[in-house]
Simulated assay, not measured.
Amino acid sequence: MQAIKRKLQAYVNRCLRPILRIGWPRKICNIDFWRKINQRDITLEIRRRKFGWLGHILRKGTDSVPRNAPEWNPQGIRRRGRPKNWR
């Protein structure tokens, strides 16, 4: 899980640096970079957005797909290999 979080944060940093025109010779550590752009850690941002979405899901009916999606457990076994394209 930590590896995924690091990769996400690296991706966000890699996208924001060219937008803000912070090039290769000007090295800024990540903490100063986040402070400069007023950006939170990506894990905190994901958690905040998840809780915002949770309120919408809980107001849905009990038979709605988004409400049942977190508890859904697919049954059965998929076939091994590439799926055949049927025409």
Rank of each mutant, 00 (worst) to 15 (best):
K7F: 11
L20V: 09
M1A: 08
G61L: 02
R82H: 14
A69T: 14
R6D: 15
R79G: 06
R49E: 03
D41P: 07
E71T: 10
D41G: 03
W24Y: 15
K60D: 07
I28D: 01
I77E: 15
W24G: 06
R21G: 06
P66S: 11
I4P: 02
P83A: 02
G76E: 01
Q2G: 06
L20Y: 14
R40I: 05
N68L: 14
G23H: 10
Q39N: 03
P18Q: 02
V65G: 00
I57K: 04
R80M: 01
A69E: 11
P66E: 11
K5P: 04
I46G: 00
I37A: 15
A3L: 13
I42T: 11
N68W: 00
W34I: 09
T43L: 05
R14Q: 13
N38D: 04
D41N: 09
R67F: 03
K27T: 06
R48V: 02
R78H: 02
R80A: 04
N73V: 10
K27S: 04
K5D: 12
G52M: 05
L20I: 09
I37Y: 13
R40G: 05
W34N: 15
S64G: 05
Q2M: 10
G52Q: 11
L20T: 08
I31M: 14
R59N: 08
W86R: 06
Q75E: 10
K7D: 13
S64K: 12
K60V: 00
L8R: 05
K60E: 14
I31T: 15
P25R: 08
I31A: 15
L58A: 02
A69Y: 10
K27A: 08
H56A: 07
Q75V: 11
R79E: 03
Y11W: 14
D63V: 04
L58S: 03
I37V: 14
I4K: 13
C29V: 10
R35L: 12
N38S: 08
N68D: 04
G23N: 05
Q9R: 08
K50A: 01
K7N: 07
R78E: 03
W86F: 12
R82Q: 13
R17K: 12
K84L: 05
R59Q: 12
L44P: 00
R87V: 07
Q9S: 13
Q75A: 09
V12F: 06
D32S: 10
I57P: 00
D41L: 12
R17I: 03
P18T: 01
T62Q: 08
L44N: 04
G76S: 01
I31H: 08
K36W: 07
I46M: 01
W34R: 15
G52R: 03
H56Y: 13
R26S: 09
K36Q: 13
E71H: 05
